[in-house]
Design a protein around this nucleic acid. Structure first.
Lengths: 189, 189
DNA sequence: AATAAAGTGTGATGTACGTCAATTTATTTT
DNA sequence: AAAATAAATTGACGTACATCACACTTTATT
């Protein structure tokens, strides 16, 4: 199971098995049940989570109680409230499980410790964050320039497996439309 | 003028003047006139740009020729088409000058060279990218959960100096509305 | 200074998408 | 298997914002 993480590291940097084991010793393993929270609005955020199995969603609850999905986390993805995690603030998002989920948890202190001990690890996180950046930018682009329908079709193309497993109203919220609108989108198609 | 960059580095990491001079030797200085392009759609992206003075905009032109502003770059900001820059792709955005602009240019090769030579520099870029990440995420949140008016008011609050100098139709495009709508927003207020 | 070009504001009208409400269909829970 | 809960669909209607058209003003260009 931990091979998932090792494999991800090795896509970006070279590390020996021993080095990986040392790195891994800085993570803790946790198992969550569907509906449990990894991160809760208003609380401290102790960890960045690397998803081993299952599926979580990160969402923001606005003043009207409306929910806006920021991200999903599935196998091989990292997820947390980064602003709260990096800068020791209170979380503004919630992250909870759409199904039973296993994760590896990395505290910010351990992250910094690893980064300062291993130049390679720092390089790994830098490059990972670079990628996330590009993905976020593209999401902004698509929110600015595409209609709900276009965004839906793009998502369908990019993450067909996710569309399968996600409740539609959750997907709708990620796309930035209501569930009613999403329902009408694929009715029309 | 180069102190702007030095100061930015020293907000995040410790470096000596000599180290900084060595780092700086990996940048090239360029001056652009209003309306000149730093990055053009379809072309290679050779540099990440650190803005010393002036103002640039990064935008995407959609199939209908409509323009969507991704980011502005003013003093102390880094800007480029990161997907193209990091991964040697063709640019999908344009970056041009809203006024005469001076920049320091860093090639991806030099960036990687510096990162591998100085652990500290790698740390600098990692932490910078972390911040950008948080900013991008918040923009997504605001596009998902706020009305045009709320976004306008937030921008006004956050970047009052930018609102001054930006043409309104450009600001409108950043906010994700038409210039007509923006015009009506502050008429109503 | 004259002419062109770019930027801004305002009205009339259109449309994508939201809201509310009722019904149907799945999925959990006991 | 029954009861409870959550998810998805459909219709009627509302609204935030877009589009188009035109007038006006400010900023470039010769």
């Amino acid at each position: 199971m931990n091979d998932i993480l090792k494999t991800q590291f090795r896509k970006i940097i070279d590390i020996t098995d021993d080095e990986f084991d040392y790195i891994l010793s800085h993570f803790s393993y946790k198992k969550f049940k569907k509906h449990q929270f990894l991160v809760q609005d208003g609380q401290n955020v102790d960890f960045d989570y690397f998803v081993l199995s299952g599926c979580v969603k990160s969402y923001y609850s606005d003043e009207n109680g409306k929910i806006h999905i920021l991200l999903f986390g599935v196998q091989d993805w990292w997820i947390t409230d980064y602003e709260a995690y990096y800068y020791q603030k209170k979380a503004i998002v919630n992250i909870d499980c759409l199904e039973d989920t296993e994760v590896l948890c990395l505290s910010n202190d351990n992250r910094e410790k690893l980064c300062s001990e291993f130049h390679q690890i720092e390089s790994f996180f830098r490059k990972k964050t670079n990628r996330r950046n590009v993905a976020l930018q593209n999401r902004i682009l698509s929110l600015l320039s595409s209609s709900a329908k276009e965004r839906y079709e793009k998502f369908l193309q990019e993450y067909p497996m996710l569309v399968q497993k996600l409740p539609k109203h959750i997907l709708a919220s990620y796309l930035g439309v209501t569930r009613e609108t999403l329902s009408r989108l694929y009715a029309t198609k």
